[in-house]
């Protein structure tokens, strides 16, 4: 499998916005389209730097090898990246104006450089509260050994 090419990622979220499901179109429970992504050490390290997390477990191979992890790993919040890297331009998370209200993730095992991550993503529920419209989504992330690395839910406020 080809490694994920960050330079090929479409950063203009307005492009193709008309192809995305709005809140009305979201069908709770239906699995959404996604594709596996193989992450390089560089992409993981750029992510870690962006949050100011310079833990040597992400950067120092010799140090990491000497720990119980046995090698480099990724920060536990790296799944933020998969929500976008594993989905196409028409995925509803890219809708401009999507506001993250909360998130819960269970972290089963670390992601490592070279892992190929598959995302199983759904809108699980949707609701209207205090005049705003919300979607609940659940995500399960698996590695190339079909082991779950992380699972959890998010809660977003959606634009009308």
């Amino acid at each position: 499998m080809a490694e994920f090419e960050p330079d090929d990622f479409e950063t203009d979220f307005w492009k193709g916005a008309e192809d995305r499901s709005g809140w009305d179109d979201l069908e709770p429970g239906k699995t959404l389209k996604s594709h596996p992504v193989t992450l390089s050490k560089e992409v993981i390290q750029r992510y870690a730097r962006s949050i100011g997390d310079l833990n040597p477990l992400y950067f120092d191979e010799d140090y990491a090898k000497g720990t119980r992890f046995g090698g480099l790993i990724a920060p536990p919040s790296v799944h933020a990246l998969f929500l976008f890297a594993c989905t196409d331009h028409d995925h509803f998370m890219r809708t401009p104006g999507t506001v993250n209200m909360g998130q819960n993730w269970w972290l089963q095992r670390p992601v490592r450089p070279g892992d190929t991550i598959t995302l199983e993503a759904r809108c699980l529920d949707k609701l209207i509260r205090k005049g705003n419209i919300f979607a609940i989504h659940d995500n399960v992330f698996r590695n190339q050994h079909d082991q779950v690395v992380c699972s959890g839910r998010g809660w977003t406020m959606r634009p009308y």
Partner: peptide, 30 residues
């Protein structure tokens, strides 16, 4: 929101890793 989430995970991993334990779960409300 996920940037705040990521910074919150550091409050756990900074003392748990590598030898004290696992950071198993984080539920946040922004």
């Amino acid at each position: 929101g996920l940037m705040t989430y990521a910074i919150m995970t550091r409050a756990m991993t900074d003392w748990l890793w590598p030898d004290v334990g696992e950071h198993r779960r984080l539920e946040t409300r922004f």
